[in-house]
């Protein structure tokens, strides 16, 4: 384990009776990285996250977080902020009281006014949390997680229930923390967020990694796609074009730029206007769908 390794997981196994939710999983996350832990439903990412956060004991394997056992809360948690996927506040405490309480229990120092300002809840400081909307509660969740600028930040579905402005604000705060060296572990169902922001992605399926690497590495194995439609009486398109059910055509390619140029040249030569032309690189969605297709086939 290098001195820059923040999370080190070796041979992790999590079992519930005879069912192994996580099987021999190994990965490490370096300081300053934003690592997205993604997975199909029931892939085992929640169990993995719970062990790494220190909420659950591993059945076997070793897990070190910031060099310590993550279950050792008094040592690890003052350096770690956790935004759980689902957790509550006491309805009879105000926003400021809740942020102050959780912040103080986290063992970090900060100003309540500052963290509430980060999530635009300063004007709600004296409002009881029971009167907050779902999105406001989620923002308060985030505020308590980033209280005291933790070295390591877990974000479990952080933007679920947030409007666009709140999402942008949250990601801007995360970026500022990353600029200061904070390591981020993200889980999300919004794949475009992971694709845009993650340095590396661990993609789980049935208890283990199906893929792990950068977005480019994950998407490299699948072709990009070009889609277009032709006007009536147009000549036959290039032979690599595959007719679709809706009368459009698709070209799947590992050489997007070359094949797109060939298609445009063909259209120019024949004086054909390509209707609804789109060219898209491979997305994480495609990688997910490929995993689903593999599972169905197997």
């Amino acid at each position: 384990m290098s001195t820059n390794t923040v999370i080190d997981v070796e041979g992790l196994d999590v079992a519930y009776g005879d069912f192994h939710a996580v099987k021999d999983l190994s990965f490490h996350i370096e300081r300053g990285e934003l690592y997205a832990l993604l997975g199909t439903n029931g892939a085992g990412k929640t169990s993995t996250l719970e062990v790494v956060e220190g909420h659950r004991q591993a059945t076997s394997g070793t897990v070190r977080v910031l060099g310590s056992d993550p279950a050792d809360r008094s040592v690890v948690r003052p350096r770690v902020g956790i935004m759980l996927q689902e957790s509550g506040f006491s309805a009879d405490l105000t926003v400021a009281e809740s942020a102050r309480l959780i912040g103080r229990l986290s063992g970090r120092e900060d100003s309540v006014e500052r963290v509430l300002g980060l999530v635009d809840l300063g004007h709600k400081a004296d409002t009881r949390t029971g009167q907050l909307s779902g999105g406001e509660r989620r923002r308060l969740d985030f505020a308590t997680a980033v209280y005291g600028n933790p070295e390591l930040l877990f974000l479990d579905e952080p933007t679920t229930g947030l409007d666009i402005a709140s999402r942008d604000s949250l990601w801007a705060t995360v970026q500022r923390l990353r600029d200061e060296g904070t390591t981020v572990v993200l889980t999300t169902h919004y794949l475009e967020e992971a694709q845009q922001r993650a340095d590396r992605i661990g993609l789980m399926h049935r208890g283990t990694f199906r893929h792990q690497g950068t977005v480019a590495e994950l998407t490299r194995s699948l072709p990009a796609s070009i889609q277009f439609s032709l006007p009536r009486h147009a000549p036959a398109p290039p032979t690599s074009s595959v007719p679709q059910a809706d009368a459009s055509y698709a070209i799947e390619t590992f050489e997007l730029q070359r094949d797109l140029k060939q298609l445009l040249d063909w259209a120019d030569t024949h004086g054909v206007e390509l209707e609804g032309l789109s060219a898209a690189p491979t997305r994480l969605d495609d990688v997910f769908r490929a995993i689903g297709a593999d599972s169905t086939a197997s």
């Binding site: 956060e53 909420h55 809360r73 008094s74 690890v76 948690r77 003052p78 956790i82 759980l84 689902e86 957790s87 509550g88 506040f89 006491s90 309805a91 959780i102 229990l105 986290s106 063992g107 308590t144």
Partner: peptide
């Protein structure tokens, strides 16, 4: 009440034992 409101879960995400 604290368990049902998931407040215990939140408290366990802090440094408190």
């Amino acid at each position: 009440a604290r368990r049902q409101g998931l407040f215990l879960k939140r408290l366990r995400s802090t440094a408190a034992s």
